[in-house]
Design a protein around this nucleic acid. Structure first.
Lengths: 234, 234
DNA sequence: ACCACGATGTCTACACTGTAGACTTTACCC
DNA sequence: GGGTAAAGTCTACAGTGTAGACATCGTGGT
């Protein structure tokens, strides 16, 4: 036999590792969507028997969790930034960027946590939460209030991402055409505004929209903070 | 043979209909989760051959869309309410209620739209959008701004729902115990705040939280409105 | 050099999935 | 009654996740 087996595809048969598996999985999801990520397909992509994957993830579900973790791990948070609002803005844009980079993985980010009790989630998923709490407490919020702020903030952020991805239609170029085409199908009688707003929908600027929403929310939250530290000046 | 065939389960074999199929599907999802909803299982539940379902939904995917639509159809929106903020609050609480009533279906609400271009979605899914736009325009927003407001509002709303369901842990009674148990597992060194906030997490009041976030957001949005109608008073 | 042992990868098999296509049964109208 | 379209069924195929037994590899000790 030749020196390299050159299996169906992929590398010349070095040892596998969790990172390699997850990376390939994410690659596959990015390229062909979540449905394409089956154990067999991933095995084929790695030039290995599908069963070998179970050494690196207990389940398909666990594998999906791993992929989600991988996407989130690219977020860098600095919990000691004195300008908490700026830091939250930075994080928000970072997450948005990841979402746009891996749109097919977004359902995972949003959906997997729903099936796992908070405390049992992969640590990578919990770290942002912890770090943001720390950031907020350092900024002067009472711990309990930090939790409220976190919820308002992260809620808005996830919501925005879902919104943006829904409108963007993952398809790259023919965006506008597709969008208008779709809207054109709507009965004009029942959907006058949606149809009228088709051009506006096509010009959607997610980044600006996010920034604007954050501005409203963060200044509102800040108002709470000053009101509170002024009021209960123990 | 006896007068009634009494199949595996369900009714005595009357005619099927889309509504019946979808209702049973939602029932099944509520009871056993999304994964339990297979064509074969649903067929069995209805006492019919699985293949008969394809008369009422082209696909399994279409069936899932139908279930999502069913959940959303319970929302009632009054686009002519003069108090737009109150109306938006009412809608928000309505959606939250549906989400808590059908937690297993929430991934559908959040995920299905991601795989369908906006204009091609089931009309039931688009109606809320249209109605809210109409509400906002009636309240004095420029159409384009109405779209921005809608996005900020719906983004926040969906985000909140995801947040709340994540923390609530669908399991009914042993909530607090489970939660604490989970958190207790976290390394105290890396997750001090999360652990410290375990009690606060257990007391999560989703309704109040939603109300508070909405208050911040809506008053911020209203400020935009007054600023705008005052400024460009043509 | 050899052997042994634990980690890594493979094979086989089972129960289950969605759904295409041809078929049978049912309900209803003239 | 006869005809026709809809509703329901049957069979079959290609694909899925994964348990359990097995083979192979890499690295340690002696």
């Amino acid at each position: 036999m030749t020196s390299a087996d050159t299996p169906r595809s992929g590398q010349p048969k070095s040892r596998l590792s969790r990172d390699i598996v997850l990376a390939k999985a994410l690659e596959l999801v990015d390229a062909e969507g979540l449905e394409a990520l089956s154990m067999r397909r991933l095995g084929l992509e790695l030039g290995r028997d599908p069963m070998s994957l179970y050494r690196y993830a207990q389940n398909r579900a666990a594998l999906l969790d791993g992929v989600a973790e991988l996407v989130l791990d690219d977020l860098s948070i600095e919990p000691s930034d004195p300008d908490w609002k700026a830091q939250l803005r930075k994080i928000a844009h970072g997450l948005r960027r990841q979402a746009l980079r891996h749109p097919n993985a977004v359902p995972l980010l949003v959906t997997r946590p729903l099936s796992t009790p908070l405390g049992l989630r992969p640590l990578g998923t919990l770290r942002p939460l912890e770090q943001i709490l720390s950031l907020l407490v350092a900024a002067g919020f009472e711990p309990a209030d930090a939790l409220h702020v976190y919820r308002a903030y992260y809620g808005f952020l996830y919501g925005h991402i879902l919104n943006e991805l829904q409108e963007f239609v993952v398809d790259p170029e023919e965006n506008e055409a597709l969008l208008r085409l779709g809207l054109h199908r709507l009965p004009a009688k029942d959907f006058p505004w949606l149809r009228a707003l088709a051009p506006a929908l096509a010009e959607y600027d997610g980044e600006a929209e996010l920034e604007q929403g954050l501005a409203i929310l963060l200044s509102g939250l800040e108002a709470q903070l000053t009101r509170q530290t002024a009021g209960s000046g123990a």
